[in-house]
Structures are given as structure tokens and as C-alpha cells.
């Protein structure tokens, strides 16, 4: 499938900031399931900093914007040819050992409810067990935008029984790690309108490292594994660690940070081929 992405993140500050520094994971991963046709990231007034592929295989690119500025835009635009590999991250070059993805973070710290969930995992059938975990997370958390926020932890989301894709992914990761399965958070895009029309499409899911298969994506928010409608950007231990954009602005003067307003529009569409 040929997917086109047009993703704009617009930051406005209530007073001029002295500068902005951002670290981006906004380049599609290189693996057998996707191939970049063309891709570009621009930052208004920005200077591109160091670019490198990290040990997890993600392209990391930093940007700085010299102030004073009151707004900046990050614009991602491109086309990716995708292929359905049933979630298997085949042909992805990375060197971080899967064992490094067994540690908990503040956002994925398990509680007894998460430990209960983890008991659904069946070690003698690793793949079946991974699917069972993912299905259980889908059942446990109803899709409810606004019920949670960016800093909601896995334990909190599970207790609430509601959330968005970030919560589904973090709960699945937390449970998988308790079960001894290396697990990570993946950020990317999802083309979810069957008619191919543009729509909101920033998305997140989880990858579990399953014996005999390697990393496999699971999207409990949509009860499926990533297929040709997904574009994978990068991964991390949790949502913060895997964020496509991590940034900070320096307020002018020393009277604290300027308050920041963020608006995001993502359009993703399937092209006629």
C-alpha cells in the first residue's frame, strides 16, 4: 500500500522563547514491511543538528531554533510503501539486546492488577500467549478519548478501564514484562479510514519479543497486529522514551517556562496505485 503522510505540529508560546531544542524520531523505520518513497521533515526557522541511527534502529535527528520566537511548526511530509507482515518486524537492523526491554519505567510500573493480567501469558506457547495478553488488554480498556492524559501510567489506565492507544500500549508492555517478555512502545501512523480519505492518524502500539519470531507488533487499541496501514517511526521503553518529538523551549529571562500550546494535524491517505 502506498501511504502519504502530512503531519504538522504547531507550537505557540504565550511570550517569546529564547530558543527551542528538539529531538525527533520522525523517520520511518527501515524493515521489510515499509520502504520510503520520499520523506522530509522541516522546522520553521530551525537548524538541523546531529542525525544518526541509534542502537534501536531509529533515525534520531535534532533541531534547534534560535529565538526569540513565539511559534514554530514541525512539518513531516512523505510517502511510504508498506506491506503486511502480520506485525513481524522482519529485516529491521538493531543492536539493543531484547533483555534491555525488560525493565520497568515509572509509566509501566506494574501493580497487582497488571501482574494478574500477565498470568494469561502461556510460556509454552509464546506466540499464542502474546496474542492472549494483547486481547486481554483490548478487553480491559475501553477506547475513551479524554479519560486519560499523557502522564497516565499503565496501572492507572488499567484501574480506570478506559484510555487511548498510549494506554493500551503501556498496559500491554507492563504486563508482558511481568511475564518475562521483552516489550517496547512504538510510535507511528495509522491509516484507518477504509475509503482512503485523510484523517487523524498519529498512533502508538506495542512490540513484544517472541521466541522464534523476534519483535512482533500488537495493537490492542485496534485488536490486531500492524499491517500495511501502519507506518512505524520508532520505539522506546514507554511513551515518553519513544516520543516522535521530544523538545524543550527556553524562556526568555529567568521567570520560568513560557506556557506552550500545541496543535497537531496528521493526515494519512492511501494512494491510488
Amino acid at each position: 500500500m502506498l501511504l502519504s503522510v502530512d503531519h504538522v505540529t504547531h507550537y505557540t508560546y504565550d511570550r517569546p522563547v529564547r530558543g527551542v531544542v528538539q529531538s525527533h524520531r520522525l523517520t520511518p523505520s527501515r524493515f521489510d514491511g515499509q520502504r520510503v518513497v520520499d520523506w522530509g521533515v522541516t522546522v520553521t526557522g530551525g537548524v538541523m543538528g546531529g542525525t544518526f541511527r541509534d542502537g534501536a534502529g531509529d533515525v534520531v535527528q535534532s533541531w534547534t531554533v534560535a529565538g526569540p520566537v513565539t511559534e514554530i511548526s514541525v512539518h513531516v511530509k512523505g510517502q511510504v510503501e508498506t506491506r503486511d507482515l502480520a506485525g513481524v518486524l522482519k529485516g529491521h537492523r538493531e543492536s539493543v539486546p531484547p533483555l534491555a526491554y525488560l525493565r520497568h519505567t515509572a509509566a509501566t510500573q506494574p501493580d497487582p492488577a497488571i501482574a494478574d493480567l500477565a498470568r494469561l501469558y502461556t510460556p509454552n506457547d509464546a506466540l499464542g500467549g502474546a496474542h492472549a495478553l494483547s486481547a486481554a488488554v483490548s478487553d480491559a480498556i475501553a477506547y475513551a478519548p479524554g479519560a486519560t492524559h499523557g502522564a497516565t501510567t499503565a496501572a492507572q489506565a488499567l484501574a480506570l478501564g478506559m484510555g487511548v492507544c498510549q494506554d493500551h500500549a503501556q498496559v500491554l508492555i507492563a504486563a508482558a514484562r511481568v511475564a518475562g517478555l521483552p516489550a517496547r512502545y512504538v510510535s507511528g501512523y495509522l491509516q484507518a479510514n477504509a475509503d482512503g480519505a485523510p484523517h487523524e492518524a498519529a498512533h502508538a502500539w506495542a512490540e513484544l519479543c517472541v521466541q522464534g519470531f523476534g519483535w512482533i507488533g500488537f495493537d490492542p487499541a485496534n485488536r490486531c497486529c500492524p499491517d500495511a496501514r501502519y507506518i512505524r517511526l520508532g520505539s522506546g521503553l514507554d511513551a515518553t522514551d519513544a516520543a516522535p518529538i521530544r523538545g524543550i523551549s527556553r524562556a526568555a529571562g529567568s521567570t520560568g517556562a513560557a506556557s506552550e500550546n500545541l496543535s497537531v494535524t496528521v493526515a494519512i491517505a492511501a494512494q491510488e496505485q
Partner: peptide, 24 residues
């Protein structure tokens, strides 16, 4: 570096790890 490690850190330098990892 709050952009790589603890996002709440006020002691470090934002973006330092990207400079380090790209050889700067």
C-alpha cells in the same frame, strides 16, 4: 539531558545526547 533521559531534569543540557551521539 531531559530530551534523552529524565524529562524533568533541570541540571542537564537539552539535546546534549544527540550532539554526543553524532560525534559533536
Amino acid at each position: 539531558d531531559p530530551l534523552c533521559f529524565n524529562p524533568a531534569s533541570m541540571l542537564g543540557v537539552a539535546g546534549l545526547m544527540d550532539v554526543y551521539r553524532s560525534g559533536g
